[in-house]
Write a protein that binds this DNA or RNA. Structure first.
Lengths: 200, 200
DNA sequence: CCAAAATACGAGCCTTTGCTCACATATTGC
DNA sequence: GCAATATGTGAGCAAAGGCTCGTATTTTGG
């Protein structure tokens, strides 16, 4: 797996069937990732599962990495949408925090194995610049509600809370828990405890 | 990468130089994992970096997976030692918690990238039975101090705390933080918050 | 209709990589 | 010293997998 610049579509689909092909490829990649992890993901198999030929695959993706890249971009976009929606309305910071956490849980719940497989895959990809923008975006969403609690270092607090949530949620979902409210109910006191202590 | 039964040394070294060879192989694998991740780990390269021949490598490890297995076993043993030491002496549960967290942080700090690479690698390995025993062991260490705080479901609390710590510590170390005390100081209130809320 | 553009195909090239095997060297016990 | 045993070597096999390229088919615009 060569680590190259980045990975944008080689050719953008202009006809409807081309878009269907691209869609099929991404779906196939997702299915394979879920079932067999990164080690099971290879371009021949993707093409086979998608019901297209390798040639078609390489008409829209310059390399294997680009396919994972596309999946990751989708996942990120979905998460950002969820988080933005959570803080869209007017509400006290407490409520916003709660909604943010629930949004995060639901995001991972949708397809927990895919989410995890992608999380793990991200490390391999050189999406540096894009990743930085993505994380900045997340931070900018978390910052207002977190700041409302008055921690000394809001940015650090936001990052810590994000990491802490990710850890607990991933573990809970992998264990087979399905009740988002229950997970949220355990997470919130931890976050509150953190925030109370971090304001001088 | 074939997912096979398990992975014990094919031949146990009887002479000193043989042990040195095994050691060199494991060290090399660790170095490669740190520098290039799992994708860079292949048996030819391991042998090259270790300064031995592939043949020698396969005299002591039945397959590539077994090498990662050995590294993971080491890491786990080190973590268990650290945790056991943390709760060895008589002390109030508060102190024990603090020491446990510091032990965990130091464990990951030793070689954070290796720790992470191995964490990710674990998913690929079929160490199921061993993994279960390992997790049970960890739980048995955490349970006494956690129970002292009187949560409704001590086992769940212990698991949650573990996951939450892992998340925050990993993120902090990856960000480049080095002050274990500082990380611990932010983690403790979160844990306390969690525990306070989870006791009826 | 028809030519040009877009899309689809898949055999197969070429590299990577896990691993073996026939053989060489070192160590040990007697 | 001399087997017997343990250890070390590395060319190279076989399989897997990333990716190309010449060709076939479909769609589109006029």
């Amino acid at each position: 797996m060569t680590v190259e610049p980045i990975a944008n579509p080689r050719k953008t689909p202009r006809q409807a069937r081309a878009e269907a092909t691209v869609e099929a490829i991404e779906q196939a990649a997702a299915r394979i990732l879920v079932q067999g992890g990164i080690e099971a993901l290879n371009t021949n198999r993707i093409a086979e599962v998608a019901g297209v030929s390798v040639g078609s695959l390489y008409q829209y993706f310059p390399n294997k990495t680009a396919i994972m890249g596309a999946l990751i971009r989708r996942k990120r976009a979905r998460l950002l949408d969820g988080l933005r929606a959570a803080v869209a309305s007017d509400a006290p910071p407490n409520t916003h925090m709660r909604r943010l956490i629930l949004a995060f849980i639901h995001h991972q719940t949708g397809w927990p194995q895919l989410a995890q497989a992608l999380d793990r895959a991200e490390v391999f990809l050189p999406l540096d610049e894009e990743t930085r923008r993505f994380e900045a975006e997340i931070l900018s969403i978390l910052l207002p509600p977190v700041t409302a609690f008055g921690p000394d270092d809001p940015a650090l607090a936001a990052r810590d809370i994000m990491a802490l949530c990710r850890g607990m949620v991933e573990a809970a979902l992998l264990r087979g828990e399905t009740d988002a409210e229950a997970i949220c109910a355990r997470l919130l006191p931890a976050i509150t405890g953190y925030l109370k202590a971090s304001s001088a």
